[in-house]
């Protein structure tokens, strides 16, 4: 299957297969006024299968959301048909207002104006704890 290459924009590559749509929604890509292609289950030498997202425009990406959803993603910046930059995302040290603390005893359960902040406490285990009550994020 062929998808047109992009002249100026971003290719989000090496997304774990089937996670493309989650990223599409998390980054609100549906609200952009340009073409966005989601390729799912593409063959990959490294991963077996992978998803790819192509965005036909240069935009600011929320790297924390990307890193949190899938830290193995690579980002390619395309300018005038050339890849000018390639970089890897990382697990964010802190994630804000992406997930909600489920501990009924946490202060965030009663004070709704507080931001929901989770802090990375163990990189290897991808463990995040609520900044306020230290409850571990459930998978």
């Amino acid at each position: 299957m062929n998808i047109d290459s992009i002249r100026n924009g971003i290719v989000i590559d090496h997304i774990q297969a089937k996670k493309g749509m989650e990223i599409y929604h998390a980054l609100n890509l549906g609200e952009l006024d340009c073409s966005v292609a989601i390729i799912t289950n593409a063959k990959s030498k490294k991963m077996g299968r992978k998803d790819i997202i192509k965005i036909d425009k240069s935009i600011d990406l929320d790297m924390d959301i990307l890193g949190y959803i899938d830290p193995n993603i690579t980002i390619n910046i395309i300018k005038n048909d050339e890849r000018t930059e390639k970089y890897h995302v990382e697990l964010p040290k802190e994630i804000v207002n992406i997930i909600k603390c489920k501990n009924p005893r946490c202060i965030t359960s009663t004070e709704n104006e507080l931001q929901q902040i989770f802090v990375l406490t163990d990189k290897e285990k991808k463990a995040y704890r609520c900044k306020y009550c230290e409850t571990l994020k459930e998978d």
Partner: peptide
């Protein structure tokens, strides 16, 4: 002292 966890941090 507060019954909610994290209240003193807030």
């Amino acid at each position: 002292r507060h019954p909610k966890e994290g209240a003193p941090l807030v």
